[in-house]
Design a protein around this nucleic acid. Structure first.
Length: 595
DNA sequence: CTCATAATGATATTCTGA
DNA sequence: TCAGAATATCATTATGAG
């Protein structure tokens, strides 16, 4: 007897007998698509089940978890079933990972069936700095030059106490120079100290220089430190063998085309299985760790991601990848067109904007902003250059910080962070959209949201299709970027089911819904992991299906700004990507049955 | 408890000049 | 063409005040 593999969304409705009646098993359609709905041979099923169990058991967080993730396999256990039960239901299969023919790279770590705990521990964090490097960086941050710091460590060993190392360096300085050299932290305002970092810009001999700022000095040294470290790691790693498998980001991030730009692509053909209804729209950051977009695309019908920089829609950059099955013909931009440069958007900054700050666009709006310390340091560094243009090294330092933190000029030598109101406008939201939440929360929610004009450009094709309103399933809604975009396009919102766990964001969306006098239904669901197939089925039957499924899954573990847990798709928050396509497949499955 | 503040690197990619 | 430099990046955490 063969074993039938059921696509999730069909199993509970079909009434056909299955050896796993209480367990639904779903594979990524691209990997096991050929197995879906077919009767497999005993051997084929055997292999599949083994593969599935191995993957599931090694990636499941605990036996009580209903959901198990692995890049290419997705399992959903039916109600009341635990991993244990699944395991018990298959006693005939000897589960020994070693006798399976996995490629070495996919070999799973040993696991223990009796323990419910995870066997998938994230490997020890990306190897941090070595003890030696840590010491070196510490000294560099104190203002010592890299070369003297590293020779001190070479001589005394990496375990030497930091104060001893400092003594060593000052002693060494005494020997190499007749002049008394003081420690950098104590005195940086006098004449130069010898060292490589002073060769920048050939200014070391200039009498014009009045002050040598500690901040600039340390910044330059740190840059040098990371440059050297990068060089080392570059040498170490040869070119990656699976280079071709990786989705490459386009040089010009214009996707399939943006307004006022020659079209890159006028139409495309989608795989049959991906064609709507419903339409779907997925978003995430463009710059992810290697291979992430390849994986995402594989789960979403191998559709080519559309990489777009919101630079072409506003005064701020926002590089994102979008995977969707919307038509791309006859798109039109949202009106009015917002200001496209910083100077147009913030005219009052013009009078303070130095000529050497060549920026006309802001960088990506993030969830964090610069500290007052940073802006003070910049002011201090600039204030000594009365009536003259600061030297190149100062300009470089200031520009680096301004770009990094999106600082704008609000006074003579004074830079400031953007206000939440300004960010709202830059992202295309109505002003005061997030008002009411704490300042911190506003920055956070806005930093995590869609750029409305960009999304609206993609959604504009829906306007003709749904003149009587649209039903939207909005996953990871946040502050409602998709809803705002549709509303601004003039597409009536018939039903909106918003799945968002953050109460702050829910309040913001609800507030907007009321303020804009929406006539449709707003249904709020909290935790996406608790949205079951049954619940979706109820909703689909009562609302008559969804026209659009939109969502941007958490990017926390993908973005380069994350210093601590940039673990890729397996990371704590970004793993919820799997929920996106689980729900997409489920809804698609249920709607297929209905039609 | 909430809120604000400040300190905390690393990576992938593009650019550039020889 | 290519090595090295330059650039950009939807963040997390500890801490302290109220």
């Amino acid at each position: 007897m063969g074993i039938r593999v059921w696509p999730y969304g069909h199993w509970y409705d079909s009434g056909e007998p299955s050896p796993y009646r209480d367990t639904s098993i779903c594979f990524s359609p691209n990997i096991f698509g050929s197995a879906l709905g077919r009767n497999l041979s005993r051997a084929g099923a055997d292999h599949l089940i083994r593969l599935l169990l191995l993957n599931a058991l090694s990636s499941c967080k605990s036996s009580a978890d209903a959901l198990a993730y692995q890049d290419d396999v997705y399992i959903f256990l039916g109600m009341g079933l635990s991993m244990k039960a699944l395991e018990n239901s298959l006693p005939q299969y000897e589960l020994d990972p070693c006798d399976l023919q996995f490629p070495e790279s996919e070999r799973l770590s040993p696991y223990d069936f009796s323990s419910g705990d995870s066997c998938l521990e994230i490997e020890e964090d990306v190897e941090h700095l070595s003890a030696k490097e840590r010491k070196l960086l510490q000294l560099v941050e104190m203002g010592f030059l890299i070369d003297e710091a590293s020779s001190a460590i070479e001589a005394s060993g990496p375990d030497t106490d930091i104060t001893e190392l400092m003594d060593y360096i000052s002693a060494a300085r005494m020997n190499t120079s007749d002049e008394q050299q003081e420690l950098p932290c104590q005195n940086l305002h006098d004449d130069e100290q010898p060292g490589p970092s002073h060769q920048h810009g050939g200014l070391s001999t200039s009498k014009k220089r009045k002050k040598l700022f500690k901040e600039e000095e340390i910044w330059e040294n740190k840059q040098e430190f990371w440059r050297r470290k990068q060089k080392q790691s570059y040498k170490k790693q040869a070119k990656s063998p699976d280079y071709e498998d990786i989705v490459h980001l386009p040089k010009l991030m214009i996707g399939f085309g943006v307004p006022d730009h020659p079209l890159h692509m006028s139409h495309r053909t989608l795989p049959k299985s991906a064609v709507g209804p419903p339409y779907f729209y997925f978003e995430n950051v463009a710059w992810t760790p290697k291979g992430v977009w390849t994986t995402i695309s594989r789960f979403l019908y191998n559709i080519e991601p559309e990489f777009i920089d919101s630079l072409y829609f506003s005064a701020a950059a926002r590089k994102r990848g979008y995977i969707h099955n919307l038509p791309i013909e006859n798109r039109f931009p949202l009106l009015p067109i917002p200001p496209m440069t910083i100077q147009e958007f913030l005219p009052h900054t013009r009078s303070w904007w130095p000529s050497w700050d060549y920026r006309s666009k802001l960088n990506c709006l993030q969830t964090c902003h610069a500290s007052v310390q940073t802006t003070n340091k910049i002011r201090n560094a600039l204030e000594s250059w009365i009536d003259e243009v600061p030297p190149e090294r100062t300009q470089k330092y200031v520009l680096y910080e301004c770009k990094k933190w999106n600082l704008i000029w609000t006074g003579k030598n004074r830079v400031s962070v953007l206000e939440p109101d300004e960010i709202e406008l830059l992202l295309g939201y109505p002003i005061n959209h997030t008002r009411g939440a704490s300042r911190t929360d506003r920055y956070k929610s806005l930093g995590n949201s869609f750029q409305v004009d960009t999304v609206a450009f993609h959604f504009s094709v829906l306007k003709k299709m749904f003149p009587n309103g649209i039903s939207v399933l909005s996953l990871f809604s946040g502050i409602g970027g998709a809803e705002v975009a549709l509303h601004r396009l003039g597409i009536p919102l018939k039903n909106v089911v918003s799945v968002e766990i953050s109460e702050v964001n829910n309040i913001i969306l609800r507030g907007w819904w009321e303020q804009t006098n929406q006539k449709g239904n707003l249904i709020e669901l909290g935790d996406i992991q608790k949205v079951t197939g049954e619940r979706l089925s109820e909703l689909i039957h009562s609302l008559g299906g969804f026209d659009l499924i939109v969502g941007g899954s958490p990017c926390n573990n993908l973005t380069g700004s994350n210093r601590l847990s940039r673990n890729g798709l397996a990371g704590e928050q970004s793993v919820l990507f799997h929920e996106y396509y689980r729900i997409l497949y489920t809804v698609k499955g249920i709607m297929d049955i209905m039609s």
